[in-house]
Nucleic acid binder design. Structure first.
Lengths: 251, 251
DNA sequence: TATTCCGATAGTGAC
DNA sequence: GTCACTATCGGAATGAG
């Protein structure tokens, strides 16, 4: 479903649990977490604030509309999204370990000028390995240091800064952010310039495989060291069990 | 063979008759006529001046190099191309009649700044209906009134004009002609603007079919009139025979 | 900054 | 203004009741 208001339709549901399991991942009193229909990484979720009094659909249209509404209410909404996101992040980390044998970065943040209506917090893994990641706009919109992707922690920090700084950041003008999406392609991890998308995608695969190899070796060393020690903590058993299940990992 | 010097290799052959019949259409002491390897119309030939003393390959590289060499020799070369082209044109006209039942325009002219080396006079039919005509550059380069396509008769007339005019025209600077190739698409025949190449190509087909219909009706009326007359000339028999053979005509 | 489809545009490599 | 290949860029439609 490629409709521009599909997220809003989810967010205004009185009974989100009636959504198909292929769409809904988790929900609370205040938030829904759905699978991104076109995931740009191995893990990619969206956390949506539910529409409920005193929050209306207009206020929750996007980050800009939220930030220009009541500041305390806005912060509360973001905190609720953050709470839900932290839980989702933990579930992703467990899944990383059980399915791929290691853990890698998870990013949480907003797009300044989204096309789809209704505020959505992206939670995605840093591999950016996905068939759905097809063009420069896709990639640059998630590049963690380019300027387009607004990390949740940064957005929350705006509330603690000077009100004039908050006002400035809250503008979120399309013309201020659009240029980032046209920046030259470069690996977010090593900084190397990439000629085109196929080259970038191949490189991202390599980066992720390299990280997998190094992390798995590190974990193996750690395990060997711990096995050579006389005592063990209760958590170790789980960790070893998770590590032994390798699943459909590519790296 | 899409090589940039293939025409020169033909033109410097001592025995052009050894060229494959799929390449060589006709030849004289001074000229070769070859099939355009990527015809942009139903009929599309190239007439090449043969390389022979005192003409060298450099002088015959393109129209600009020829025109800036000895003026009388240049005119002689163009006259030889013209003579050969007139013969080829007559053969095309006969083929039009025998295969398609009517005749339509045939254009003869040069491109000001060709990529392929060796002067070549284009002879092509005005339908511009061909799978090989794929983009705006192709089309605009043969548009008969845009300015890029240099009609042979016009080029020959430069020799009769004031020497300063000849000098001006002989410049043939790429930058003076390149803009024509980017002009908006418009039908050369009716002037209508065309949104894109598929629309233009469909329209060109329509134009040609319309012309075929009208010309065939005109010819049929003429024949009926002549049949109603008591006398006939010896040529009429041939013409009727040609008209009756309809061949693989599309229109 | 939703995707997908279509088409134009740009760079390259060819031997 | 050689072609053919790859990739990018640019606009338009898109669904649902």
């Amino acid at each position: 479903m490629a409709h521009l208001t599909v997220l809003r339709s989810y967010a205004q549901r009185g009974r989100p649990e009636t959504l198909p399991a292929s769409i809904l991942f988790n929900h609370t009193e205040t938030c829904l977490t759905v699978y991104d229909a076109f995931p740009k990484a191995i893990f990619h979720f969206l956390v949506l604030p539910r529409i409920r009094p005193p929050l209306d659909a207009e206020e929750l249209t996007n980050l800009r509309t939220l930030l220009k509404s009541d500041k305390k209410r806005a912060r509360a909404v973001l905190k609720e999204l953050s709470n839900e996101a932290e839980g989702v992040k933990k579930m992703i980390q467990e899944e990383m370990l059980s399915r791929y044998g290691f853990q890698w970065e998870i990013w949480m943040g907003f797009h300044p000028v989204p096309s789809m209506q209704h505020l959505h917090l992206h939670i995605l893994s840093s591999d950016l390995c996905s068939e759905k990641l097809k063009n420069k706009k896709h990639y640059n919109s998630f590049h963690p240091a380019l300027g387009f992707f607004l990390h949740l922690s940064d957005v929350l920090s705006w509330f603690e800064a000077d009100p004039s700084f908050f006002e400035m950041k809250s503008q979120l003008k399309a013309r201020d952010y659009e240029p980032f999406l046209k920046d030259d392609l470069a690996c977010w991890k090593c900084g190397r310039a990439m000629k085109n998308m196929p080259a970038l995608k191949a490189h991202l695969q390599t980066e992720w495989r390299d990280e997998a190899r190094k992390e798995k070796a590190r974990i193996a060393r750690k395990r060997k060291f711990e096995e050579s020690q006389p005592s063990s903590s209760p958590g170790d058993g789980e960790e070893r069990a998770a590590l032994s299940a390798d699943g459909p990992a590519k790296p």
